[in-house]
């Protein structure tokens, strides 16, 4: 087992809306990321993936609030640290974050090289313009971006190019953990592949220690990550290796996700897609029992009342359901 770069224990955070309502978007989430490994987070829109990513950085600002739990980055607990220290000393160096749709948020009046200068300035690295340029050039070369991109404005770059530039800027300080929130969802398949290739390359070259990859596309997660966590309504419902989650999901929700996979391979045309009916619960008033109970095919009266804990299998795989592994497998067999 490699060194653990990021460990999160029972992290809970909430949003406070304008109308003073609490939205518990991350509820007792625990996870571990090992050096050289990629962790995937899957789940449908609104389940709290982006909120989890934001919470992992330990830097909270309204409307997001920290409630409880620990975040340990490379042996250092950052939850008690003062926000300014976190921003200066942790963000970008230890944990780097690429927000969803970051590529569309680039300031259109700045050139790419200016963004890089900004990053260096924020972290007080005190390098002069020439040094910064040299550093950026080498980085761009390693990640396979042409040097000319440095002198361009965001609008002059295509979607895929922009996204790769954003990633390059994020890994400027060789972070131990890179959190990428849906970095390829807005791109076409070709650009998506280039982005993925770049991320893999960054891992291989050791420019990032480990990767947390967020998307709702299971086939993509399967190809990129080692482990996958499935999230539902603010909670983790299943955790396992990518292969296990994709080919042998245990939790009924993960099973449902599997039913929506489409790949251009023979035989796919005959598969009937299974959609999960209904909508996820409102996170302002989450149900007290299993959060998936409303939509679950195999729901029992008990599911709606008792809160469900994790069950752990021998191989370390965990899931959150009242049924045992054998019961679930049998239910799936019978359809």
């Amino acid at each position: 087992m490699g060194k653990i770069l990021l460990e999160v224990r029972e992290l809970t955070t909430k949003y406070v809306t304008r109308f003073r309502e609490d939205v518990y978007a991350v509820d007792h989430v625990s996870l571990q990321v090992e050096e050289g490994k990629a962790l995937g987070i899957a789940g449908e829109s609104g389940c709290g993936k982006s909120t989890l990513a934001l919470s992992l950085m330990g830097y909270y600002f309204a409307p997001l609030h920290y409630i409880s739990g620990d975040i340990i980055v490379d042996g250092r607990n950052i939850t008690g640290m003062d926000p300014d220290t976190v921003r200066k000393a942790v963000l970008g160096r230890d944990v780097a974050y690429i927000p969803q749709a970051a590529m569309n948020a680039l300031n259109p009046t700045q050139k790419v090289i200016n963004f890089i200068e900004d990053v260096i300035k924020v972290h007080d690295l005190g390098a002069d313009k020439k040094e910064i340029y040299e550093r950026a050039r080498i980085l761009f070369e390693t990640v396979g971006l042409p040097e000319s991109v440095l002198h361009k404005y965001p609008v002059e770059l295509s979607g895929g190019m922009k996204q790769r530039t954003v990633i390059a800027i994020a890994v400027l300080l060789s972070p131990k953990v890179l959190i990428a929130d849906e970095p390829s969802s807005a791109l076409d398949v070709t650009s998506q592949k280039m982005v993925i290739k770049m991320l893999m390359r960054l891992m291989e070259d050791g420019l990032i220690g480990s990767l947390i990859f967020i998307t709702h596309e299971l086939p993509l997660l399967y190809n990129v990550t080692d482990d996958i966590m499935v999230m539902y309504a603010g909670q983790i419902v299943e955790k396992g290796t990518a292969r296990e989650i994709v080919f042998d999901p245990l939790h009924p929700y993960a099973k449902g996700l599997m039913g929506s996979i489409i790949v251009p391979e023979e035989g796919v045309r005959d598969v009937k897609l299974t959609a999960i009916p209904g909508a996820p619960p409102n996170l302002k008033k989450p149900p007290s029992g299993c959060r998936f109970a409303e939509r679950c095919k195999y729901v029992q009266p008990l599911c709606k009342v008792t809160s469900v804990g994790f069950k752990e299998l021998d191989n370390g795989r965990t899931y959150r359901c009242i049924f045992s592994e054998a019961e679930l497998r049998e239910a799936y067999q019978n359809g």
Binding site: T190, I196, K197, P219, Y222, N223, V246, V263, E265
Partner: peptide, 27 residues
């Protein structure tokens, strides 16, 4: 299943697969 054009083949290649190998070297 039988693409004739290189471009078509590339498009097929670029979609992430789960049963077959997803070849990252082609981009």
């Amino acid at each position: 299943l039988n693409p004739k054009e290189v471009y078509t083949r590339r498009l097929i290649n670029d979609v992430p697969k789960i049963y077959e190998e997803w070849d990252l070297s082609t981009v």
